[in-house]
């Protein structure tokens, strides 16, 4: 099944042209501009944003839309995976060593996730890293033979997966109703609003990652439909 030779000749040519133009654009973008950059504006406003870590304040305050839509993308991907069919059969039960190792690693991962969530306000960390830790805990449990990767029953899974998007959206709409504009946090309580959004987003990201790893509709729904 070799691809035709014309393709093998044309693709490098296309890539070369693409690479040259993109490389020129990269070089030009790096040294061509000398005015004020967006980074300076953002870094100046960080103390007012409710989080002292610049990446967190960009994610949840300055570019809140982006993160909201990103959570919606995650939810959509999960809906797509769930609509394609039931989850794969669980992994075989683990041996003694793996089982006791999992008993140590999973609580540690969950604690690390909570720590990363809290520390995200002023140091590297935040909802995505914490969600990744929860996801890793669930994947570890799944690989050790747990049928649902530690996830609760199916209605709870649906609620948890949608929670991040829902809270984020309701927060934005609520702030709009209070006259402050969509996702424009009042200065005094910004820290707490961001923390609520981050905590729910962490749960949602973790649950979505685990459910995506399981790769299909939750078990209870499958049993009911058959």
């Amino acid at each position: 099944m070799r691809p035709p030779s014309l393709l093998c000749l044309l693709v490098p040519l296309l890539l070369l042209a693409l690479g040259l133009s993109l490389g020129w654009a990269l070089g030009d973008g790096l040294k061509g501009y000398s005015g004020e950059r967006l980074a300076e504006v953002a870094l100046e406003l960080v103390p007012e944003s409710g989080a002292t870590h610049p990446v967190t304040s960009v994610l949840l305050n300055f570019r809140g839309y982006d993160t909201l839509l990103e959570l919606a993308v995650l939810l959509t991907a999960l809906l797509g995976i769930w609509s394609l069919g039931p989850a794969a059969p669980p992994y075989p039960p683990p041996g003694l060593v793996l089982a006791s190792l999992v008993g140590w690693v999973v609580p540690l991962l969950i604690i690390t996730g909570g720590y990363l969530l809290w520390v995200g306000a002023y140091a590297p960390g935040g909802a995505f890293q914490a969600g990744a830790m929860l996801g890793a805990a669930g994947v570890t449990l799944t690989l050790a033979g747990h049928p649902t990767g530690g996830l609760p029953a199916e209605p709870w899974q649906r609620l948890l997966a949608a929670l991040g998007t829902l809270v984020f959206l309701l927060m934005g709409l609520g702030l709009m109703a209070l006259g402050s504009g969509f996702l424009i946090y009042p200065k005094g309580i910004a820290k707490w609003l961001i923390l609520i959004i981050e905590a729910t987003a962490t749960l949602s990201i973790g649950v979505t990652l685990i459910a995506a790893f399981l790769g299909g509709r939750p078990m209870s729904l499958r049993n009911r439909s058959r």
């Binding site: 980074a39 953002a42 610049p54 990446v55 960009v58 991907a77 935040g126 990652l209 995506a212």
Partner: peptide, 24 residues
């Protein structure tokens, strides 16, 4: 610059969900 960092952070999570969807 924190702005590209925020973009990449969301991008990584979107990439893994797209991979999971493609595998499904």
């Amino acid at each position: 610059d924190p702005i590209p960092h925020a973009l990449v952070l969301t991008g990584i999570v979107v990439a893994v969900s797209a991979t999971a969807l493609a595998l499904a």
